[in-house]
Amino acid sequence: MKLTREEVREVAYLSRIEMTDEELDRMTGQLGAILDYADMLNELDIEGVEPTSHVIPMKNVMREDVVKESCGVEKALMNAPDRFGDFFRVPKVIDEGEGH
């Protein structure tokens, strides 16, 4: 599978990272080389093998449903780049952005 610059442009958009055409070109070459290397995995027979997403057997971990102390509004907002009262303030969200 050959990675194209248009595919990389789409991946950059999905990743929410702005890139210039020059950066896209470089990234296309680098990601292509890594994916070519990953094609090595096709040498293995994985028929009937279950995937492992986690090595330890995971169960849902529950705690008692009781109210505990939480960090509080001031601490939660102390690193906010922009705030309005007790809220995080962001630019308008209606438009889809610059498009891609």
């Binding site: 958009y13 929410r16 990272i17 702005e18 939660a76 690193n79 906010a80 780049p81 922009d82 995080f88 962001v90 630019p91 308008k92 969200v93 209606i94 438009d95 889809e96 952005g97 610059e98």
Partner: peptide
């Protein structure tokens, strides 16, 4: 994403701000 902590680059809409 520039919303809750860390640095932010200003932009007119939110997706541009993220990017």
């Amino acid at each position: 994403d520039g919303v809750q902590y860390g640095m932010r680059e200003d932009a007119d809409d939110i997706v541009s701000m993220y990017r």
